[in-house]
């Protein structure tokens, strides 16, 4: 159960029709999501504090349109995959990137 501090201010799904429930893993932890969502949406909604790092500084999506690469994560072994352009797939393995 995430504590209140971590959840306050985080991104939230709006009431809306969504796809079938799915699950991906982010750094090994299961993250619930819905078909049709991007990896960025799933990670933001789950409150993942950093998608990538730049010289140790945390980054989350800045542009959400594939240009800034700050949402670059490793998806099923392929590094620097843009979470904002990648649709979730049940069982997808996502790793946030260090550096």
């Amino acid at each position: 159960m995430p504590d209140a501090e971590a959840t306050s201010g985080r991104a939230a799904r709006l009431p809306s029709e969504r796809g079938e429930p799915a699950e991906i893993t982010v750094d090994g932890r299961p993250v619930g999501c819905f078909a049709g969502e991007t990896v960025a949406t799933a990670m933001l909604a789950a409150g993942v504090p950093a998608f990538s790092h730049r010289n140790g500084e945390p980054r989350i999506p800045l542009c959400n349109m594939g240009t800034c690469f700050e949402c670059g994560v490793t998806v099923d072994g392929v590094p620097l995959t843009r979470a904002c352009l990648t649709t979730v797939r049940d069982g997808m393995r996502v790793e946030t990137s260090e550096r």
Binding site: A11, A12, R13, T38, P49, A50, L62, C63, N64, M65
Partner: peptide, 20 residues
């Protein structure tokens, strides 16, 4: 984290129904 471009925020709302 939390500084976002206007287009990014709008994209999340319009296409993902996500409030950042």
């Amino acid at each position: 984290p939390g500084v976002m471009m206007a287009g990014a925020v709008q994209g999340f709302l319009k296409s993902q129904r996500l409030r950042v």
